[in-house]
Measured scan of single mutants.
Amino acid sequence: MVYKIRDKETGKVYEVTIDEETNEITVYDVKTGKPVKTVNMTIEELKEAGYEVEPV
């Protein structure tokens, strides 16, 4: 599923895909559409880390 996340401190917005089964999150560069990095976190962990998470 695709989400937009926003860093509450910097205001930067990222587009991510989240595999609900493995909790693998792939972060994409919004301008190029290319993957930047992959992390292993849940949506709740993202929120605790200071991100706003919205489904696209």
Rank of each mutant, 00 (worst) to 15 (best):
M1F: 11
M1H: 11
V2I: 14
Y3L: 09
Y3P: 02
Y3S: 05
Y3M: 14
K4G: 01
K4S: 05
K4R: 15
I5H: 00
I5T: 01
R6W: 11
R6S: 06
R6Y: 12
D7M: 03
D7R: 01
K8P: 12
E9D: 09
T10G: 03
T10I: 00
T10H: 02
T10K: 02
T10N: 06
G11I: 00
K12G: 05
V13D: 04
V13I: 12
V13Q: 06
V13F: 07
Y14A: 01
Y14Q: 01
Y14F: 10
V16G: 05
V16P: 00
V16R: 00
T17I: 11
T17E: 06
I18R: 05
I18Q: 04
D19G: 03
D19L: 05
D19N: 15
E20K: 12
E20M: 12
E21W: 09
E21G: 09
E21M: 11
T22V: 06
N23P: 03
N23S: 07
N23A: 07
N23G: 13
N23R: 09
V27D: 00
Y28D: 00
Y28P: 01
Y28M: 10
D29G: 01
V30F: 10
V30W: 14
V30S: 13
K31P: 10
T32M: 03
K34Q: 09
K34R: 12
K37C: 15
K37S: 08
K37G: 14
T38W: 14
T38G: 05
T38E: 04
V39H: 05
V39F: 15
N40C: 13
N40P: 06
M41V: 08
M41G: 10
M41K: 05
T42L: 03
T42D: 04
T42Q: 02
I43C: 10
I43H: 02
I43V: 07
E44T: 09
E44S: 10
E44I: 09
E45H: 07
L46V: 08
L46N: 00
L46Q: 00
L46H: 01
K47E: 12
E48Q: 13
E48W: 08
E48A: 13
E48Y: 08
A49F: 09
G50A: 05
G50D: 03
G50N: 05
G50W: 04
G50T: 03
G50H: 03
G50K: 04
Y51I: 02
E52W: 06
E52M: 06
E52C: 04
E52G: 04
V53N: 01
E54I: 11
E54K: 04
E54A: 07
P55W: 09
V56E: 07
V56Y: 07
